[in-house]
Design a protein around this nucleic acid. Structure first.
Lengths: 131, 131
DNA sequence: TATAAACCTTACAGTTACAGTAAGGTCAAG
DNA sequence: CTTGACCTTACTGTAACTGTAAGGTTTATA
């Protein structure tokens, strides 16, 4: 199949598939006579795996590691576990930070009863030192 | 004062201060004879304002708007309000997305009782289509 | 006084994961 | 035979910086 077909099956833009090839996240595609990339069923699997990982916000460099580990079926999956665990921690930390941010923004949003910029409490608060 | 002093007072790296000048977020600094940038007290205020906005993850382009609005003390602060409101919405949306992500990652993290990659439930799940 | 440390300057490259655009080749349908 | 839908590469742009190189200045010390 050609790249746009693969794109449809994987729900990834063709552009992104070429990009993944360029950076070595997936192997170089075979080419047919006209120079077009030619794909098979296992290319779909590989790219769906990548897409799922990206949806989990796993960085591309880490996906490379996952693919490498996967290649050796007998190796321990400790590395997989810890990678997912790290990702989970990262997400939790970000949520915590954003939750604080949300509170600050909410306080700010409800702080100004005035009409003109010269009196605006929001702007005043943004000018204060704080930490 | 020189740039490193300003950096200390604003808690911003000198590098970042130069960058803000370069992109026109803050006005070009005066220079003294040796070509060094020379700053005053109001440069501190301006940059603290910028830093506070960035801590709230307000994009630089929006900070430019805030600074422009601020310049006209008699103008309505509706724009300020709505900008903060938008930022709050953005943060809330991101939190919601990350919360879903957290659940998925948590399920994944606790899904594999096996030892070897060939049997790893995590990897299996990552290969499934899903949506 | 020599020199080394600690500043300052500009300019360019690197980061992350793509998306946009240009310029051009290929293929099937009408 | 040409139009439209594909395909190709290559280069640029995104956001908000950070790192590095190469060099000038100032200040402290030996």
């Amino acid at each position: 199949m050609k790249i746009s077909q693969l794109a449809k099956l994987t729900h990834l833009p063709s552009k992104t598939i070429r990009y993944y090839e360029e950076i070595g996240l997936v192997p170089k595609a075979l080419r047919n006579d006209n120079g077009y990339r030619e794909y098979r069923a296992d290319d779909v699997e590989r790219l769906v795996f990548v897409r799922r990982c990206r949806e989990l916000q796993i960085p591309i460099e880490q996906i490379k590691i996952l693919i490498a580990v996967q290649a050796d079926k007998k190796s321990s999956c400790k590395e997989v576990d810890s990678l997912i665990e790290q990702q989970l921690e990262k997400v939790r930390k970000t949520i915590a930070e954003l939750t604080l941010l949300e509170q600050t923004l909410h306080q700010l949003a409800t702080s100004c009863p005035n009409e003109i910029v010269g009196e605006c409490e929001i702007l005043k608060r943004l000018q204060q030192e704080g930490n």
